[in-house]
Write a protein that binds this DNA or RNA. Sequence first.
DNA 1: CCGAAAATCCACCGTTCGGTGGATGCCGCC
DNA 2: GGCGGCATCCACCGAACGGTGGATTTTCGG
Lengths: 217, 217
Amino acid sequence: MAGVIRVLLVDDDALVRAGLSMMLDGAAGITVVAEAADGQEAITATDAHAPDVVLMDLRMPRVDGITATRRLRARARPPEVIVLTTFDTDENVLHALRAGAAGFLLKDTSPPQIVEAITRVAAGDPILSPRITRRLMDRTVAQAGAYERARAALAALTPREHEVALAIARGRTNADIAADLVMGITTVKAHVSSILTKLGLDNRTQIALLAHDAGLT
Amino acid sequence: MAGVIRVLLVDDDALVRAGLSMMLDGAAGITVVAEAADGQEAITATDAHAPDVVLMDLRMPRVDGITATRRLRARARPPEVIVLTTFDTDENVLHALRAGAAGFLLKDTSPPQIVEAITRVAAGDPILSPRITRRLMDRTVAQAGAYERARAALAALTPREHEVALAIARGRTNADIAADLVMGITTVKAHVSSILTKLGLDNRTQIALLAHDAGLT
DNA sequence: CCGAAAATCCACCGTTCGGTGGATGCCGCC
DNA sequence: GGCGGCATCCACCGAACGGTGGATTTTCGG
């Protein structure tokens, strides 16, 4: 990233491309090397111009932005991709991130912030619009709640019981567990019974769910 | 946020406070109204000076940063809290976010970025260091993977089977399910058997785990 | 109108689960 | 030394589970 950051604009709206292009070319350290009107063009343009960063819209004819992103990221020396869209549905965000996008910006992002985002992403940092960040934080915190409740409950178990609980959370039967942990089936049952009473549960399925929430793979 | 952003610095190291104070007071739109050396002082200082934003260290004597953050956020007109620490363990991040922190920055963050973070947080936006953002993204993407695999598998089920699978994912027995869904126990068993063969599973616990991954509450 | 898929139920059977009431040996701690 | 917690095992039992081989009705699309 020694010199200028090479940017490719992908949006099916020519006016949007024109606006972004004008705005970005006026910024220091950034040059727009190409534009594309759909995902297919984005791929050929990437091969032709080797951009550092791709600004990618999602809703486009022929090949959509998600698919294009996935294909670009599968390349040998992939560009960083910033998804720039109006719609921040969970669907869109998750798919974009899974496809390998380094950033997800809403179209209400101000020009200077877009410039900054491009710079950051080119440096290897991820970038999310505040609303998206908030969403991820809330989601994480919600899970953390279940996680800690589960953890606290499992803390009452002895080490051996813990192992048994983990095996149950993998869907193993008592016989399986006996073999895995090298003990008698009767011992496994003793542990299972103990776990159930300690945690106030009714059956092994509930053990599995609790252990799963506690993050026991 | 009409005028200047009022900031409270909380860190047990006087040198760190001095450095931050000097750096922040030189910035436009920010004034450091108080400093505190531990969580207890942070709370009294907040009551005395009503800061807009609190820069909070985690490792401190008496009351730690997480606890202090939780208490501050429980107040009537709570300040926004940015946790500023050297250690970005999952533990720390999750606890901070749960406690109500609006931001989590590592101490390698550059002064101008800290200034910007304070401004953003004061405006109601969340702020995370790139490393933390990346962590949250990876975590979300990983879950999304399991989610979609589970969803795809469950798509093979009929509506009624779907309901049964959901009940199993709540740890219900066949008899329970029969009562819940108003059908014979034998019918429940028929559905369970069908689910197991369709999904290639061995027992109801595995159904529960799969359905859980698919987000079926 | 017919066929396929879905949903409902039956009887029967072997397996798995979970509980009860024990017993033994080991370890750490007061 | 003794006591409690932990881990290990036994026998026995009833309940829950899962599979097999049926059967019936409804529903929906071609």
